[in-house]
Design a protein around this nucleic acid. Structure first.
Lengths: 192, 192
DNA sequence: GACAAGATAGAACGATCGGTCTACCTGAGT
DNA sequence: ACTCAGGTAGACCGATCGTTCTATCTTGTC
């Protein structure tokens, strides 16, 4: 990855996330990245490609940190908690502006559009992953629990940038704890 | 309200909601509403004013239907359920494209912007109203329950237009039932 | 020393953006 | 009869949109 490309992607991420995608023109991006128009169009044939690259990068980062948390030596329940804690941290991080994917979907409603598809791809992965997590935790029917988790996450991410993030964060973490408490556990695992 | 103004507002609602706000220019709106440029700018001094009017109208519609459901002769718990059912119906309605307010907030992140403020105003009212509903239902600490309700709503509304709405709807309604079941009830009301 | 990749700089494209303007018509109220 | 709000029609504004282009320079690598 060339220096210019990296700068381009970093700047695009900052601007698109902070201000919205349609609100930021290519001129803004190239000016902030200190790159020429020609350079940008060499690396990203169109603005849409840049947007997809922005979301793909975000997707990869989240996957990586999820892999990392699963690699730690923790009980399955604590892995769920850890993923929840990551989300809680996101929400109270400075400059938090909601979920990059939900925000992008709001701007690209057409399901056939590459940007929209990138959003769906990330969300499919996330739901599948959380379902695995609940299955690991001995949930007899993990999908409903995972869907509940994702719903709380989406709500927390959507609301966390609209008011004081603290109560949102607390509500979210409490919701996750409730989910872990009142769930349908299967036969406890031999080592659990 | 003049005929032209009504047509303008109706068209704006359809287009902004379906395609996003920045994605729809004034030209599109006036063409679809079969109105002249001058007429539009007579009623709405700027596009922002039109957008705010669109959200204000949506806000009023939701307030009205909430008032209606509270006026019915139902137990406080059933009022909560009824509000939840309204949201569930929204989600599976054809042409559902998520929460108009969350979508707008994604496009207008600046908290000082009139459009963003219209979003916040609606959300403040909604949280306060749901808090009242839980208080009516005898919740000793209604705000956390209301926040939980709103979080599920936001998550359901955000996700309901990205995949098959049915499982989202079911997850949401199940979450609301769980919320009503495992809550902190105060001394039961004399008539309950 | 040749060559190609990647960068620079900047002009230019047509389309669309939100918004202003002039000019004329119509119908209801006083 | 007069006024005036509300409507039509359409030219026009500067700015910005995403995109393409030519032309030159640097920096390895073969």
């Amino acid at each position: 990855m060339s220096e210019a490309r990296a700068r381009l992607l970093r700047t695009a991420t900052e601007l698109f996330y902070a201000e919205g995608i349609h609100a930021v023109g290519v001129d803004r991006v190239i000016a902030s990245a200190q790159v020429t128009r020609a350079t940008m169009y060499r690396h990203f044939p169109s603005k849409d490609d840049l947007v997809v690259a922005y979301l793909t990068q975000a997707d990869e980062a989240i996957r990586a940190r999820t892999v990392a948390v699963r690699a730690e030596d923790a009980t399955p329940e604590d892995v769920v908690r850890a993923v929840g804690r990551q989300i809680a941290e996101d929400i109270q991080r400075e400059g938090f502006r909601g979920c990059a994917f939900l925000n992008a979907a709001a701007e690209y409603p057409d399901p056939a559009h590459p940007v929209h598809r990138a959003v769906l791809k990330h969300r499919q992965w996330f739901l599948a992953t959380v379902t695995e997590l609940f299955a690991d935790a001995g949930e007899t029917d993990p999908e409903p629990a995972a869907r509940h988790f994702v719903m709380l996450r989406d709500g927390a991410m959507a609301a966390g940038c609209l008011t004081d993030p603290k109560p949102i964060r607390d509500t979210f973490l409490l919701g996750i704890e409730g989910l872990l408490k009142y769930r349908n556990r299967g036969r406890p695992k031999p080592d659990g």
